[in-house]
Amino acid sequence: MNIRDTAPDDRYETIEGRLEQDRDTVIGIWRGHIGWQAQLERMYDVYYLDCPFGRPLLQLLRHRASGEIVGTLGAGPRPMLWQGRELRAAAASHLAVLPGHRSLRPALQLLRDMTVRGLEQFEFAYGLTNALGGAIGLRGGYSVPVRLRRYVKVLRYRRFAQRVLPGPLGRAGGALLDGAVAVGRQPWLPGRRSGLHAAWTDAIDPRMQALWERSERGDGLSTMRTATMLEWRLLRLPALRRRFLLVAPAAGAPLLAWFACEANAHVPGLMTVTDAWFAGGVREADRRAVRELCRMAYAAGCEGIEVRLAAAAPVLEAWRAEGFVARGEQPLFVAGMDPGSAGVHITDIEQDG
Rank of each mutant, 00 (worst) to 15 (best):
L177S: 02
A250L: 05
L211M: 05
E231C: 03
E216D: 12
R171E: 12
D202Y: 01
T201K: 03
P187L: 04
L255E: 09
G218D: 09
E231L: 11
R236Y: 03
G252L: 12
T228V: 14
Q186K: 02
L237W: 08
R171S: 13
L234D: 07
L176I: 07
I204T: 04
V181R: 07
W200D: 10
T226G: 14
L245C: 08
L256S: 06
L240R: 15
A253L: 04
A180S: 08
L240A: 15
A175P: 01
W232V: 06
P238L: 10
A250E: 15
R193W: 10
A180E: 03
T223C: 02
F244P: 02
F244V: 00
P238A: 14
S194A: 15
A210G: 13
P238S: 12
W232T: 10
T228M: 04
A239T: 14
P254F: 05
P249L: 08
W232I: 10
L189T: 11
L240S: 15
L246K: 04
Q209R: 15
D178V: 03
T201M: 02
G167M: 06
M224Q: 13
R217H: 08
M208H: 03
R233I: 09
R242A: 10
L196D: 08
A253G: 08
L237Q: 13
A172K: 00
W232Y: 14
Q186C: 05
E216S: 11
G170N: 08
Q209G: 10
R241D: 15
G252K: 11
V181T: 06
R241K: 11
T223I: 10
W212D: 02
P249W: 00
I204M: 10
L211Y: 09
R192E: 07
